[in-house]
Design a protein around this nucleic acid. Structure first.
Length: 280
DNA sequence: CCCCAGCCCTGGTCGC
DNA sequence: TGCGACCAGGGCTGGG
């Protein structure tokens, strides 16, 4: 599941390959991708656009065109952007779009489960798009402070893990990095978000950044589908402290990691060093 | 506003 | 070997 580190890994290898290139031909094979816009309309609109930059906001990949338009790509669960196109992609039933660049290379969009989306925004629409979704702070930016995290969690009775998964609190965290961040911070995933102490909020901020930075350094986590744009697998799964490790000893205290369910998501934590504490 | 259940979607796994 | 049930979960909608 591509979260911030996976999207950032894709962004960083895509940016030099796409910047300055013109989109010569766009084929959108799955009409779901651009819903509710008709795929033909979006494909024709993209043709002729020249890439100015490839950025990221939360889990969104943002292709910036010289015209001022933006293509927002969200990979959701199983989306991949591949460049250069891998061998045999023409026979791959999961390829949902193909973009021919003016250097003759192809960018492939692949998505097994078809949750991913492409949104083409006109000049000046980007801010409103994110504002409408009330997308939260970038966790690796200077804007992500203990104070800003505290404000985002204040008054919320939901489990802190649910709050971390809410993109309005912090942008870019998904199920894997939420569990890892909580482990680093020694915070129980079920603790009410609004009841954390100042110390716990500070530790959580550090934990979030630590988990995400490690994820970027290891080029994301490949559990099954995720690949970098160059097709390379991530290595972050080798760094998991809790995610998917129920029954294995916590590396800090040796207590077996426990699996539970929070906010409908599989959730792993150490019941000892992430013990549920009374508020304050 | 908050919170949660349910939905979308496919492929892999498990039990029978 | 076949087949149905179930699970993975990001973002969104709708109900309470």
């Amino acid at each position: 599941m591509p979260e911030l580190p996976e999207v950032e890994t894709i962004r960083s290898s895509l940016a030099p390959a796409l910047t300055g290139r013109r989109l010569e031909h766009v084929a959108i094979l799955d009409p779901r991708l651009t819903r509710p816009e008709p795929p033909e309309i979006v494909a024709r609109a993209l043709e002729g656009e020249r890439v100015a930059d490839v950025r990221r906001r939360g889990k969104y990949l943002v292709v910036v065109f010289e015209s001022g338009r933006h293509l927002l790509v969200h990979l959701r669960m199983t989306g991949n952007v591949l460049h250069p196109a891998p061998e045999g992609h023409r026979d791959d039933p999961h390829v949902r779009a193909v973009v021919r660049l003016d250097d003759g290379s192809d960018v492939i969009y692949r998505d097994v489960r078809r949750f991913g989306t492409w949104d083409l925004l006109e000049l000046g629409e980007l801010e409103a798009y994110f504002a409408a979704r009330r997308l939260g702070a970038e966790p690796l930016s200077r804007a992500f402070t203990t104070a800003s995290l505290g404000r985002a969690l204040a008054g919320r009775k939901a489990p802190v893990k649910a709050a971390l998964l809410d993109q309005r609190a912090v942008a870019g965290i998904g199920n894997i990095y939420a569990d890892e961040a909580l482990w680093y911070a020694r915070v129980n995933p079920l603790a009410p978000a609004g009841g954390l102490s100042g110390e716990q909020i500070a530790a959580l901020r550090v934990g979030v950044r630590k988990a995400l930075r490690l994820g970027i350094r290891r080029q994301g986590a490949t559990l099954r589908d995720y690949r970098g744009a160059d097709g390379v697998r991530g290595q972050m799964q080798e760094e998991f402290r809790v995610y998917g490790r129920d029954g294995e000893p916590c590396e800090r205290c040796g207590t077996p990691i426990v699996k539970t369910r929070v906010a409908g998501r599989g959730t792993w934590y150490c019941p000892s060093c992430q013990a549920l504490r009374d508020a304050r």
